[in-house]
Amino acid sequence: MTNEGQAGEGGAALQPYKDVAVGRPKDPDLSPMSQDEREAYRETVGKLRELVKKAEKGTKKAVPEIREILREHPHLCWRLSNLSGLTEGALIDRMSRDEDLASKELMKRQLACMREEVAGDDPSPLERLLAERVVATWLQVQLFEGIYASSMSKGMTLDQADYHQRRIDRAHNRHLSAVRALAQIRKLGPAVQINIAEKQINNAG
């Protein structure tokens, strides 16, 4: 699937790119990160976070620096995808018994289908990432609601019930916020650029 030939608002033709399965891009960099890679990733994201804060407060010179980081670190998106996979794996492990490999596999496949459905046709890398977040937060809601339901049948203290309720509320908020962000990006149209690996994805709308 490519976006070749589509022209943006400014008339700029989109650069071709090969689409990859949602959440499971076949990229060598998706291998688990080494300690050094993790530190470098954290440092880059931390710097990006600071710059985003500054830019949102009106510091104009932060924006070119953000562009520079996004251009210089095209693997950030894959790294995030990697994190999503790790998070999902941890949630699935908690939801199924250790030896129940069939259930784990089934869940992984169901989530992959869900990711594709949420991401929609021909998603931009950012949409794909946001779709991954929607699915991961949905899974978290399921996990905490499931734990709460099973704890209710086993019996729990008021403090424990309160803890579970607060966890469920937070998970719901996270999920709604993830859905809102995806809807927002779609509403704004594909005018957002993001660098992926060696390929510049430019979805000018």
Partner: peptide, 27 residues
Amino acid sequence: LAGLLDGFCEDVETMTRAALLAAGFRR
């Protein structure tokens, strides 16, 4: 578990905002 997901969500949020700002949007 929640911390793992929170970290991922925050990073995606940062990436999204950064992409929007880089594309010339403002909040």
